[in-house]
Simulated scan of single mutants.
Amino acid sequence: MALPEFSLKDKVVLVTGAARGLGLVQAEALLEAGATVYALDRLPEPSPDFHTIQQHYPSFQYRQIDVRDVPGLHKVVEDIANNHNRLDGLIAAAGIQQETPALEYTPEDANRMFEVNITGVFMAAQAAAKQMVRFGKGGSIVLIGSMSGTVANRGLICPAYNASKAAVLQLARNLASEWGVHNIRVNTISPGYIVTAMVEALFETFPERRTDWATQNMLGRLSQPKEYRGAAVFLISDASSFMTGSDLRMDGGHSSW
């Protein structure tokens, strides 16, 4: 490779929430960089795109697990690490969204949001870090945050989601401070608006958002999942070897106005 520090050859990396969407796209990038990748998700079956990628990368494997099932999550991660005698990386992309006015939010819905987006991310990072410590090789953990963890979204009513992403950013800083002694780096990626299948469905209900959201950043457009591929490889690889406790905000300048 012209830039060998970006190589993930012989690395074993987990991606939660990788049955589809952003997590799957980032998993594909890791595979292309040479990693052995496991997609972890709660869906019984991943999307057809998963199987298309697997045809090119037979080592790409899927494990069904809900990040809220903490004992099961730890077991899956430990089994993978034992199978390879190492664990080098994690991208924690599993998350949910719910648009509800704050005055109407139920505690059950709020707790479900926090259980997946905060506790689930925390426990995934914990499960991976335990194996990294056990094998003594260090590693890199990437938590998927959001620009919504830094700013409130104009016209998008999602107080619990935004609060959960703010918590992810702070969680990463604290994990980085604790695990640096083990040579484990912890960073976040904060995407802007991404046009995924879920967002396309949202545009059917709120078609004006396709235009309005694009005007709210400096590039005047919405992002595609593929635009976060390089960030995944950068943060998992040695190309970011002196980066930890940091947030890589990729929002088209939305929060820099």
Rank of each mutant, 00 (worst) to 15 (best):
A81N: 05
D66F: 01
L73T: 00
K130L: 13
Y105D: 02
L73I: 00
V77A: 07
R63P: 02
K75M: 12
A125F: 11
A102D: 13
P107R: 10
A93K: 06
A124T: 00
L90Q: 10
T100Q: 14
H74V: 04
D69W: 03
A94T: 01
R68Q: 14
I91F: 06
A94N: 04
V121Y: 11
F122G: 00
H84D: 11
A127R: 07
I65A: 03
D66C: 01
T100H: 11
V76E: 07
Q131K: 10
R63N: 06
Q61G: 01
V70S: 03
L103C: 14
I96F: 07
K130H: 07
K130Q: 14
Q61M: 08
G120I: 00
N82S: 07
Q61P: 02
A92T: 05
R112T: 13
I118T: 07
T119V: 10
E115W: 07
G72D: 03
F114A: 10
R86K: 08
Q97M: 14
A92N: 14
K75F: 09
G95K: 07
A124G: 13
V77H: 02
G95H: 10
N83H: 09
A128T: 05
P101I: 03
Q126K: 15
E99G: 15
M123L: 06
A92D: 11
K130I: 13
R63M: 11
K130A: 15
R112S: 09
G120R: 01
M132R: 05
V67R: 01
Q131L: 04
A102F: 11
A102V: 12
R63Q: 15
V77C: 09
A129I: 04
V133L: 14
I65F: 01
N111T: 14
V76H: 09
V116I: 06
A102N: 15
Q126P: 06
Q97E: 15
N85V: 07
V133Y: 10
D109P: 08
E108T: 09
T119R: 08
G95I: 07
A128W: 01
E115Y: 00
F114S: 04
E104W: 08
G120F: 00
Q98L: 15
V116C: 01
A125E: 12
A93T: 10
K75W: 10
D88F: 04
I118K: 09
A92I: 10
Q126R: 15
N117W: 02
V116T: 10
R68G: 06
A127W: 02
A93L: 04
N82Q: 11
T119H: 09
I91L: 12
N117C: 05
R68D: 10
R63W: 03
D66L: 00
D79L: 02
I80S: 01
V67M: 03
V133W: 11
L103Q: 15
Q97H: 13
F60P: 05
P101R: 12
M132Q: 08
A125V: 13
H84L: 04
N85W: 12
N83Y: 02
G95D: 10
A93R: 08
L87K: 10
K75N: 12
T106W: 03
K75E: 15
E115V: 02
V76C: 06
A129D: 02
I118S: 00
G120S: 07
N83D: 13
A92R: 11
Y105F: 11
H74D: 12
M123H: 06
V133M: 15
N117L: 08
D79G: 13
P71L: 03
G89A: 02
A128N: 07
I91R: 07
